[in-house]
Design a protein around this nucleic acid. Structure first.
Lengths: 203, 203
DNA sequence: TCAAATTTTTGCGCGCACGCAAGTTTTCGT
DNA sequence: ACGAAAACTTGCGTGCGCGCAAAAATTTGA
């Protein structure tokens, strides 16, 4: 019940941050503005988010953790661990959720938001680790952490590559990326980890 | 040649930071102190390091990148890619370099330094990626990045585990870690990635 | 219901990170 | 050797992150 209120203010801060950022542009939003819009003190903002960008990003990536966890769990026990995890992560990046479509554009435009967005991938590692041990209870917890951390790292590589190739968009470039599709890129970066996932799963 | 001077001040800042931190304790060192000790303006400090802890950590981890790269390259072409990379990274953490022995203790003691120390693992990822493509020129660069990022992620897991188990040192604990040896722990966390490394190496 | 205990919010203060626009040094072309 | 160009340093100003301790709100126990 106390927890209710905390999640409420958290959500209030997130949505206020995103709204203001979309209205005025990310550069023209101070944390005082966000705090005021959410009806809390500026100091309280930093009890919930440890940087100015974090709230904005959180508005977009809030339930990432639970979504991957669910996506992994949803995969039939027949498919390999690698396929389950990889497909789940790819799925995460296929549908952009129910957010204002210009939000993503704003993130890719602002360097600070880009950086924060990439860092936020870490969020999914814990849930993935849990989902893995749930699938393979016999697996060492430390190994599960390593695998999920590797998945997160691979996803970060994909994200960075995509963001960079997106920033060099117009006309020519070194065409580093064969495909402009983020989900495809994510799948590509996750593929090399499949042997590790499967090997760990089969003993 | 101009580059000489830059590296000189960089080194001056690093060593000054480490010395002061060891003398007074990390909490009692302001960046102004470090800058003054190195004979530059406080503003210049932030042209070289983007946080107060970074310089201290850099004093200990300065040539990590070149060291792993060399260690990987030193492995005979006969041994598998996985063995080469894993052994190289483990070697990185076996000898602590020629630093004051109390430096590591200070790092493990201060939370801020711990965090920064873990983050610094990222430093080795670029060099490892290059070392990998040098070994397997036919390998896709993106795959190399993914693998090196995974190696970095695994090393971070090891480091976090080690630091945490070290902070709960005295008497009983949930004995999360079987071995108190960091190199052994690193090897343990890297093992699960071996299949991925080898699979990528053999196309 | 009321008071003690726990948790959360808030104000305050300090130091830090960094953009910006000079000022200073180094490099280079002729 | 000299002046233009590029690179590095510095001072300044602003906003931010967070430790700390007091105040406010919430939960708990009787």
């Amino acid at each position: 019940m106390r927890e209710r209120k905390k999640q409420a203010t958290r959500e209030a801060l997130r949505t206020a941050a995103l709204r203001l950022a979309l209205e005025r542009g990310p550069e023209n939003v101070r944390v005082d503005d966000i705090a005021e819009a959410a009806g809390v003190s500026p100091r309280t903002y930093n009890n919930y988010f440890s940087s100015r960008e974090e709230a904005i990003i959180a508005a977009v990536t809030a339930e990432r953790g639970s979504r991957v966890a669910a996506a992994v769990a949803a995969r039939s026990a027949e498919v390999s661990l690698a396929d389950a995890v990889i497909d789940a992560v790819v799925e995460l990046y296929t549908d952009s959720g129910d957010h204002p479509p210009d939000a993503l554009l704003m993130i890719t435009t602002s360097p600070a938001l880009r950086a924060c967005y990439v860092d936020t991938v870490t969020t999914i590692e814990g849930p993935i680790a849990e989902a893995i041990v749930e699938r393979r209870p016999s697996m060492d917890h430390l190994t599960a952490k390593v695998l999920s951390a590797s998945v997160g790292a691979a996803a970060k590589v994909a994200l960075r590559q995509w963001l960079q190739s997106a920033s060099v968009t117009p006309s020519m470039s070194g065409f580093v990326v064969p495909s402009g599709s983020l989900p495809d890129l994510v799948r590509t970066t996750l593929m090399p980890l499949a042997p590790a996932l499967d090997a760990a799963a089969t003993h």
